[in-house]
Design a protein around this nucleic acid. Structure first.
Lengths: 144, 144
DNA sequence: TAAATAACATAGTTTTTTAGTCGGAATTAC
DNA sequence: GTAATTCCGACTAAAAAACTATGTTATTTA
């Protein structure tokens, strides 16, 4: 199972889009500055986000990215799925052939855990993160 | 966050202990054979499990490991904690200094997720895995 | 039309982690 | 004393993650 900075970066960048997206397309350079993520790395991540139709792009000066759906209709699990291979915790990718073609001792445990995580993350929309942002005091992240 | 074969191996090995532990101490060589995990690697894992007092060892011929507590009193979260650094999903290890000493945009999301996973895994005891083993038909894992 | 801006594409590099190896030392049953 | 076993530390190979570099293409604007 993988849940590393890649997934975190992707969610952070998408949230940045959700927060600033009302002012037209947002360039990766902006996100790069605000969130302290390397531009080239962002480009790689956004290539995948675009493939999964989570964002759409506008090229040329003044261009950038915008969410391709309303932020109430994009959840965190989708974002992580798009950039990470998966959030599966089993060794067999859910196939159940972990040991000699059969399920290993702990297959169901990891399978259940994966479902648990997926259920949790898919219940959280970008919008709900935006709401939370407005309630919880944003220490700095930009200002200061 | 890390949840890889290391943690899976550890849980599998501990479950093997729980399943066979009634016949006195179990050698790592046995577990290595049954679960198809390299002996040397098991030794490393059990060093950590022993440090955390999850297992106790008996040296010499006929020796091996046994659970240091009843299998109703050992949960999966402990096991993973013992061999993996942690099951924390934040980048700051829960410290909240992810960005310029403050919390990053998505800190609370990962913090919540970590708690969720921890709660799930700590609710599952070795004993409950043993029960499950007896109920769910063990496709092969040895037989067939 | 030229220059600037930004996405798009791909290849390569560095760093970290994982998984596993190796060689040996200590302990204990027989 | 020998064999089985844990214990210990260093080492290595391979994979993945994180990041860099270099360019190409589309689009706007002056």
């Amino acid at each position: 199972m993988r849940l590393t900075t890649r997934g975190r970066y992707a969610v952070t960048a998408m949230l940045d889009l959700a927060l600033h997206g009302d002012k037209g397309p947002i360039s990766l350079a902006d996100i790069s500055q605000r969130q302290e993520i390397s531009l080239s790395y962002l480009e790689q991540l956004f290539a995948k986000l675009r493939q999964m139709d989570l964002v759409s792009s506008v090229r040329g000066p003044g261009g950038g990215y915008r969410l391709s759906r309303d932020c109430t209709a994009i959840n965190v699990a989708e974002i992580i799925d798009a950039v990470n291979e998966s959030i599966d915790a089993t060794s067999c990718n859910g196939k159940g052939n972990c040991q000699n073609g059969g399920v290993c001792l702990t297959h169901y445990l990891w399978d259940d855990l994966s479902q648990q995580i997926h259920r949790f993350l898919s219940g959280i929309t970008l919008d709900s993160l935006v709401q939370q942002q407005e309630v919880r005091p944003v220490m700095l992240s930009g200002a200061e």
